[in-house]
Nucleic acid binder design. Structure first.
Lengths: 142, 142
DNA sequence: ATATTCCCGACTGATTTAGTCAACTTTATC
DNA sequence: GATAAAGTTGACTAAATCAGTCGGGAATAT
């Protein structure tokens, strides 16, 4: 069980953005340096974040990205959902006509994974970007 | 974010085993048919389960596998841990000397993933095989 | 003896991951 | 208006992981 780096990078980059957003657009270049993430990879990730309306872009010199809304309104689940294809831990539901064990019924453990997904999502739904940014600010000051 | 089928199959197969274990060893062949999982793949999985002392094997004709302890004592977390390489959602901790962002400090979001892991584990630690077997027995009767 | 079962390491094709590359367009500033 | 700094987009790729398969065992009930 694992999260791809794409998801992790997205949250890292947006936390960074939340901290530096105050003064104006933040370039991916800066985020790339501060967070040590490949610039070209970040571009890919921000494209997705833009499509999901989590950030907006300002082109040209002095351009960059900004959050579309306050960090206290952006959930971690929302970010992961934007860049990861799926949060579901298990793909039990490929063919609806056949059950997930290839038979006509649901597999043995279907309900367990449903519950697990709910459990994970409820955690990620409660985490807001502002919390991460705040926490990070504190830690940097120490 | 996803769980590999190996983990899912392991839990499915052990749930099946927990149900049929009562009368004596259960062959992988039977489990394979009932759960629709490749026999050869199951062999691989059960090797791991055996090494972690979750099941024991009885060789030869009429042989098969049995649980080493009561299903009410086997946690789902234990099963996943046996067959999956890791339950940690994020590998932030590759190089201990460098932080997980390649710098000397931990990444932005390190604590978040730690919390997420704890959250997931605490769920899986509370789930016992007996519950799945029981639930499944009920459902089959309907 | 033989069929049935577990044992174990090596192998493989497909998919996903984690990026890279090239060639744009837009805009601020000199 | 030239130029540099930024975002835009699609195609490409090396490496790793996944989801099994294969082959040749060894043990045991009948």
């Amino acid at each position: 069980m694992k999260l791809s780096t794409k998801g992790r990078y997205a949250v890292m980059a947006l936390t960074d953005l939340a901290i530096y957003d105050l003064k104006g657009p933040v370039s991916l270049r800066d985020i790339s340096i501060r967070q040590n993430i490949s610039l070209l990879y970040l571009e890919q990730i921000f494209l997705k974040l833009k499509n999901k309306d989590i950030v907006r872009s300002i082109r040209g010199k002095k351009g960059g990205y900004r959050l579309t809304k306050d960090a206290s309104k952006i959930k971690v689940s929302e970010i992961l959902y934007a860049v990861e294809e799926k949060i579901k831990t298990v793909r039990c539901i490929k063919h609806l006509k056949k059950g997930c064990n290839g038979k006509s019924i649901k597999c043995n453990t279907h309900r367990l994974w449903d519950e697990l997904d709910n459990h994970i999502n409820s955690f990620l739904e409660k985490k807001y970007l502002s919390e991460l940014a705040y926490r990070n600010n504190i830690e940097r000051r120490l």
